[in-house]
Amino acid sequence: MEFKSVSDVKNKLEKADYITSKEIATVVFLAEATNKPILVEGPAGVGKTELGKAVARSLNRKMIRLQCYEGLDESKALYEWEYAKQLLYTQMVKEKISDVVTGSGSLSEAVDRIADQEDAFFSERFIQPRPLLQAIVSDDPVVLLIDEVDKSDPEFEAFLLEILSDFQISIPELGTKKAIKIPFVILTSNNYRDMSDALKRRCVHVYIDYPDREIEMRIVSLKTPGIQERLLENIVDAIRDIRKLDLKKKPCISETLDWAQSLMALQIEDLSFEVILATLNVICKYRSDSDKVRDYLEKNHTSGNAAWSISS
C-alpha cells in the first residue's frame, strides 16, 4: 500500500487515528514518494512518535522502533553476537574438536583446521539483530522510527548517516546485507542539540508545533467519543491558555486527552473554576506549575475574563 496524493495521506492518517495538517501530510507524502527520511522536530508531546506509528498503521506496515539515548552504540542498534550461545555451543561440541585435529602433523596445522570451522560460529545463528538490522533484512517494507535522535552521541549520528545513505551494512564475518525494501524512516528530535548538516541534508524536515485549536478539538473528539461540544471547546481553550503560562512543563496533547477522559469519567459537563482546581493534577505534573495555574485562575476568575473558566 502506498499514498496516492497529499489528501490521500491526510485521509489515511486520519483513519489511523492521527489528525494532521496539510503541511505534515505533504511532507509524509513526499518522503514516501522519494524514499527520503523525515526529520521531525517539535516540543514534547505534540505527536512526533505517534506520527511514526500512524504512518505504519496507515501503510499497513510493521513499525520497528529504535529509541536513542546517550551511549547508544552499534551493538544495541544494529546487531550483537550472542556470546552466551556461542560459548554454550563450543562446550557442546568440545569433543568434536579432537576429531577435527586428529591426524594433523603440527600444531599450526591443527590450528588451521580449527580455524576452518570458524564459520560455524560466526553465522547468522549466533547473531542477535537489533532494530536497524531488522529493518534492513525485513522481507516486507517497514517503518523505521528512530526516536529522539538528538539524545544520541555524535559518533552514533555519523554511523546512522552511513546507514541512511545506502541502506546497507557489512558484517565483517558475514558479508554485506542490503535492504530488500527501503524502509520508511522517521527520525524525531526534541531539539536538545542541533543535528549535523550532513544528516539534515539527507532528510526532509518538518516541525510539529502545538496543534491549532481546530485540530486539537478534532483530536480530542476522536479519542474521547461522546464528548459534549461545549465541554470540548472549554477544555481546548483552557489548555491553550495554560500553555501560554510560563510553566516547567507545558501540558501537551496527551494531557489534554487525559483531562478530557477524566472529566468524562467524572461525568462533568461544565468546566467550572472548582472543577479545574480539583483536576489540575491531571494537567500539571509539577507542584510549582499547579500553583502558577491556580494563581492565574484566581486572578481571572474574580475579574471574570477567562472565558473558558466561567462560560458555564
Binding site: K22, E23, L30, L39, E41, M195, R201, C203, H205, V206
Partner: peptide
C-alpha cells in the same frame, strides 16, 4: 510552501 520549507530550512 511545505516543499520549500522542508527542503530548505532544516531546523526550527
Amino acid at each position: 510552501k511545505a516543499v520549500l520549507r522542508s527542503n530548505f530550512a532544516k531546523s526550527r
